[in-house]
Simulated scan of single mutants.
Amino acid sequence: MPLKWLDRLRRSVPSEWGTWLEVARAIGAFRSPSRKERQLNALWAVLIFAAGAIPSALSSASVAEFSEGALAAVFGGVLAFSGLLVGFLVTLMLFTGRLGSTQALDVETLRDYGSRLRYLLASQAVTLAYALVVAVLCLIYLVVFFAGMPLLVHSVVLAIVGGSLAQCVVRATLLPVQIFELHDAHLDDELNARVQESNRRYER
């Protein structure tokens, strides 16, 4: 059953945003099905965010003194990385959602396989969200920089940028493993399908 506050929020927004809330809730359930895993995910998220946010906040005074060209080079690189990662993740998610040769799989195996694919999609969706957040935060910091806002604002925004970027980079390291796992599963499906086909021909 959905949480009461989530249900009320879903009813108070347009249908497409209500669907987004439901999908976000489903992603959270697939990523953290148990309380222990939710706590572990939250702990790692906080540690990784802090590892990026603290150095970024401490360096905010130096960053605020950057020339416009230097700032554009640094944040342009971060935006390019985020954009590249977004495009790659969208393509990967579309490919991940395509099942291989499942005709030879029994119901239980197919259910387990579908659960694993949903878990991979949920993980990739979270990484995609971080990449989008990093891009938006970079644009916000550029506004803060060129508007000449106080150093405290620089520190807060830059800390959030750094923490989100750390999350994005760390989660990006999971992608090669996920790609290998995806292809390995597809190859197993193809092999099982060929074995079943060979067995049927032999029985004839």
Results as ranks from 00 to 15, higher is better:
residue 119 Y to H: 14
residue 116 R to E: 13
residue 138 C to G: 03
residue 116 R to A: 14
residue 99 L to H: 12
residue 73 A to Y: 14
residue 74 V to F: 15
residue 95 F to L: 10
residue 122 A to I: 02
residue 86 V to M: 07
residue 108 E to F: 00
residue 88 F to A: 09
residue 149 M to K: 01
residue 126 V to C: 03
residue 111 R to K: 13
residue 77 G to P: 07
residue 140 I to V: 14
residue 68 E to H: 04
residue 115 S to I: 09
residue 96 T to W: 02
residue 103 Q to M: 08
residue 67 S to V: 04
residue 93 M to V: 01
residue 125 A to D: 04
residue 116 R to K: 13
residue 81 F to N: 12
residue 138 C to S: 08
residue 83 G to P: 10
residue 108 E to R: 06
residue 152 L to E: 10
residue 150 P to W: 01
residue 95 F to R: 14
residue 122 A to N: 07
residue 100 G to I: 03
residue 139 L to C: 11
residue 127 T to L: 15
residue 132 L to A: 13
residue 120 L to T: 11
residue 66 F to Q: 07
residue 80 A to C: 08
residue 90 V to E: 12
residue 77 G to I: 03
residue 112 D to H: 10
residue 149 M to A: 11
residue 136 V to T: 11
residue 73 A to E: 14
residue 113 Y to F: 09
residue 67 S to M: 07
residue 104 A to I: 01
residue 99 L to M: 14
residue 85 L to I: 07
residue 81 F to A: 15
residue 72 A to R: 15
residue 146 F to Q: 12
residue 102 T to S: 10
residue 120 L to I: 12
residue 84 L to T: 14
residue 111 R to A: 15
residue 63 V to N: 01
residue 118 R to Q: 13
residue 123 S to V: 11
residue 152 L to T: 06
residue 108 E to M: 06
residue 73 A to K: 12
residue 153 V to H: 03
residue 63 V to S: 03
residue 78 V to F: 12
residue 146 F to L: 10
residue 137 L to F: 08
residue 147 A to G: 05
residue 149 M to F: 13
residue 101 S to L: 12
residue 137 L to E: 02
residue 63 V to A: 00
residue 140 I to A: 13
residue 144 V to M: 05
residue 97 G to D: 05
residue 77 G to K: 14
residue 136 V to Y: 07
residue 97 G to W: 06
residue 104 A to Y: 01
residue 131 A to R: 04
residue 113 Y to K: 03
residue 130 Y to Q: 15
residue 69 G to K: 11
residue 144 V to Y: 00
residue 86 V to A: 02
residue 76 G to C: 03
residue 144 V to R: 04
residue 90 V to R: 10
residue 63 V to Q: 02
residue 118 R to P: 09
residue 93 M to D: 01
residue 127 T to M: 12
residue 65 E to G: 12
residue 66 F to H: 09
residue 108 E to G: 00
residue 84 L to I: 12
residue 96 T to R: 04
residue 110 L to V: 01
residue 89 L to H: 03
residue 79 L to N: 05
residue 89 L to P: 12
residue 139 L to I: 10
residue 138 C to W: 01
residue 91 T to F: 14
residue 125 A to I: 00
residue 120 L to P: 00
residue 86 V to H: 05
residue 64 A to F: 02
residue 86 V to I: 11
residue 90 V to D: 08
residue 153 V to E: 09
residue 110 L to P: 05
residue 92 L to M: 07
residue 66 F to E: 07
residue 94 L to D: 09
residue 110 L to I: 00
residue 136 V to N: 01
residue 108 E to N: 07
residue 77 G to A: 07
residue 114 G to V: 08
residue 141 Y to N: 06
residue 121 L to V: 13
residue 128 L to R: 04
residue 64 A to Q: 13
residue 98 R to M: 11
residue 117 L to D: 10
residue 65 E to Q: 14
residue 87 G to A: 04
residue 75 F to N: 05
residue 68 E to M: 00
residue 92 L to C: 03
residue 82 S to G: 09
residue 107 V to G: 04
residue 80 A to N: 05
residue 101 S to V: 09
residue 108 E to Y: 04
residue 76 G to F: 05
residue 111 R to P: 00
residue 150 P to K: 02
residue 146 F to H: 13
